[in-house]
Simulated assay, not measured.
Amino acid sequence: MRVALLTYSTKPRGGVVHTLNLAEALAHRGVDVTVWSLARAGDRGFFRAVDPAVTVKLVEFIDLPGDTVTDRIVRSIATLRDAFSANDFDIVHAQDCISANAVGRCIRTIHHLDQFTTPVLAECHERAIVEPYARICVSRAVADEVCAGWGLAPTVIPNGVQAQRFIDASDDTAAQEQWRSDLGRYVLAVGGIEPRKGTVDLVGAMAVLREHEPAVSLVIAGGETLFDYREYRSAFDERCAEVGVAPVILGTVENDALPSLVAACEVFAFPSTKEGFGLAAMEALAAGRPVVARDLPVLREVFGDSVAYASTPADFAARLREAIAAPPDPARGRALASSMTWDAAAAAHIEFYRRAAS
């Protein structure tokens, strides 16, 4: 079976992490896998090394001065379409709107649903849902959204987790101490500063928390994106100044350093307003850290009672304070993370591909 997995970026966003891990697990099961991606800003590879069993095809994408977000996405679709040939594969599996619009007939994983006001982007989003001949979602909650909105019935195949990387980091006291030496005690959020990540709410929560825990700071990692969140970033900066919170913004963290950054935090905050699964929070559980997550149906589905839930900045502050004062036994969360393997996800995908092909 020759499978093409397509993603839009080489950076460590959730869908890209999913694509690489799935590709490697499929290859380990004997599937001939090629990962296709656009390579932006001179990238010569993904954010981490990829197993040699997986073939990687990168398509150069050159940013042009004056490009809007819409311009970049339209050109991204055209650039990938011109480079890709579906005739070389038995299964073409797109992981996002850009690749689904680029490749034509395909399977699509819908990680989460977006809302666009720009007509061109709204049309791209719509086509990437309705035109694929088969669909996968990584949680039942998102599959139910697709069913309610379009009358379609995606198959649910949960994410896997590279749990052992984060379990090992929980035992690496030297690496943790280096982070604590640099950052002090901190609440960690991963995913950058953008509306979907609920970052402004987290600033409000930290303002309340620091009334009781003044030595605990906020650290934000990650945030590579195609979209223009300057207005949200301005609101974030204004809120920080208003409440006196000075977060440490790390940007993209090297893949090998991320597990110890997670393992060294006091508590992992996950205030996202929209998620498909919550992989970063699952990695935090593997690292043995308490997690406080937004009270969303999808996160209730995935995490059950292994994390604490909050809905407002005040709720988040209270749950963060409780987790710092009395961290829960990490065994339950670690067991959950360890139970979700990429090998199991790959096996489910192979069965899905066989059904789809027939």
Rank of each mutant, 00 (worst) to 15 (best):
R230S: 15
W179C: 02
R127E: 08
A241G: 11
G222Y: 02
R48L: 03
V208Y: 08
Q162C: 12
T312S: 12
T68D: 11
A308H: 09
A23T: 05
S272N: 04
V17K: 06
I73P: 03
V3E: 03
A153V: 11
A286G: 00
D90S: 13
H112G: 09
S338A: 15
T55K: 15
A281T: 01
G204W: 06
E211Y: 12
R2L: 05
F46R: 03
P52C: 14
I324V: 07
P154Y: 02
Y309T: 02
L218I: 03
R29C: 10
D168K: 00
S170D: 08
R354N: 15
C124Q: 11
H112P: 05
L336P: 00
R140A: 15
A53N: 09
A308I: 10
A263L: 00
L336G: 02
S181P: 03
F47H: 06
W36T: 04
R319F: 02
D237M: 14
D90P: 07
L218G: 01
A357R: 15
T70V: 15
V219K: 04
F89W: 05
D315A: 04
S99I: 00
I107T: 07
S170K: 03
T312R: 13
A215T: 15
V190W: 01
R196Y: 07
A310M: 01
S338G: 10
S99G: 01
R196L: 13
D71E: 09
A41H: 14
R127C: 11
P65S: 01
I91L: 07
D256Y: 04
D171E: 15
G15D: 03
D329G: 05
L22M: 13
D67M: 08
F46V: 01
S234L: 14
G151P: 11
G151H: 09
E213I: 07
S217F: 05
A49M: 06
A335L: 09
T68V: 12
A314F: 05
S311M: 10
V120Q: 07
R44K: 13
L285Q: 03
F46T: 01
G104F: 09
W179S: 04
V219E: 01
S139E: 09
T34W: 03
L188G: 00
A357P: 10
